[in-house]
Amino acid sequence: MRLAAFNVENLFARARAMNGEDWQDGRRILEDFARFNALIGKPAYSAADKRRMAELLEALGLGRADDAEYVRLRRNRGDFLRRPKGGGIEILAAGRAEWNGWLELEREPVDDVAMRLTARVIADVGADVLGVVEAESRPALKDFSERILPLEGADPYAGVMLIDGNDTRGIDCGVMLRDGFRLATMRSHVDDADAQGLVFSRDCPEFHIATPSGARLVLLVNHLKSKGFGAKRDSDAKRRRQAEAIARIYAALRAAGEDNVAIVGDLNDTPPADDDHPLAPLLRGTDLKDISVLPGHDDGGRPGTYGAGTAGNKIDYILLSPALQARLRGSGIFRRGMWPGLRPPKWDTYPEIDPRQGGKPHQAASDHAAIFADVDI
């Protein structure tokens, strides 16, 4: 069985802010979007909150109207703001209960080249069980499987499952299964909470998969809190809470007799070097092992799975329980769909995104590599 994980960065529709060539500007827009939506959820708005909301709306291009190039302000009921003739924005609502609405990202179809290359990566990796990160919906993922994969010479996946998580941007975690692999049961952890509130930024879906051999695989697909939004201290603390929660779920599965457990996805942090690291509860506090430290791993000379492929960009993982570690026959990183940089290109790519042939960064399948492991199960 080939098990793989791939952050596809939304297959059919992506936030317009992230479809351009200036990824830093797109990241700023997403950060402002997240900050604004966090502020409007407060029960009461302080004077400082109102000033900051007005500043963020201006920065997002909403100074004159509720529609801008990258975002749209939805105001369904109540008085939230007014725009004086002299310019600027005045927040009228005293708190969340006084109005109904939200800020949403404008979306547009992903570049056709990017979508085809996403399919080509999936076809070339050839996973029997594929954990998918940042897919917008099950219908979109199923449509992609049935319509786009065949264009790249691959059969559609027999099983596709994804449910909505906690992220309003539609970046959810799912699974795709080849014929012979069947989803027996699944469990969502979208409502899991600790003393500080909801744990998972998206979800930690738990897929129990029946394999052709009759064995059972439990797959947890994850996308942990990113480093890109909010203060580093807060982001690190959130990832640690998530790592602790995943470790608890894993321990419960093992206690219930599940030996074949894999945790895959974008953990948004590097491997821990000490017990204070956000991922330490999961990678140092359990008997799980990442494929990158096990025999037979081929990283192509670069340990990272994101961006430039450096050690500081090692953020995607396949973690295996001891029973799966014993059955591992090899693993690797597949980068041909990633943008390779310019001076010089850092790895071989598909011709469509080769910068020497006119390829552009926004046409890449993803800024993440696909990762895979071959396991006898």
Rank of each mutant, 00 (worst) to 15 (best):
V121Q: 14
V121E: 12
I122Q: 09
A123M: 02
A123N: 02
A123S: 13
D124H: 02
D124N: 09
V125F: 01
V125R: 08
G126K: 02
G126S: 10
G126F: 05
G126D: 12
A127E: 01
D128G: 01
D128L: 09
D128P: 03
D128I: 07
V129Q: 11
V129A: 11
V129T: 12
L130A: 11
L130Q: 04
L130N: 12
L130V: 06
L130S: 08
G131T: 10
V132Q: 12
V132S: 14
V133M: 14
V133T: 15
V133R: 06
E134G: 11
E134I: 05
A135R: 11
A135P: 11
A135Y: 07
A135L: 10
E136C: 12
E136Q: 14
E136L: 14
E136N: 14
S137H: 14
S137M: 12
S137N: 13
S137P: 13
S137F: 14
S137A: 09
R138H: 13
P139S: 09
P139I: 13
P139Y: 15
A140F: 02
A140V: 02
A140I: 01
L141G: 11
L141M: 15
K142Y: 11
K142E: 15
D143W: 15
F144R: 13
F144H: 11
F144N: 10
F144A: 10
S145V: 06
S145G: 03
R147F: 06
I148F: 10
I148W: 14
I148H: 12
I148D: 04
L149R: 02
L149M: 04
P150A: 00
L151I: 01
L151A: 10
E152Q: 15
E152T: 09
G153Q: 04
A154T: 02
D155Q: 11
D155F: 01
D155K: 14
D155L: 09
P156V: 03
P156Y: 01
Y157F: 13
Y157W: 00
Y157H: 00
A158Y: 04
A158T: 02
A158W: 06
A158S: 08
A158C: 03
G159Y: 10
G159F: 09
G159P: 05
V160K: 02
V160G: 05
M161P: 00
M161T: 02
M161Y: 11
L162E: 05
L162I: 03
I163W: 11
I163Y: 08
I163S: 12
I163F: 09
D164Q: 10
D164M: 07
G165V: 02
G165A: 08
N166F: 08
D167L: 10
D167R: 09
D167I: 10
D167S: 03
T168C: 01
R169Q: 03
R169F: 03
G170C: 05
G170A: 06
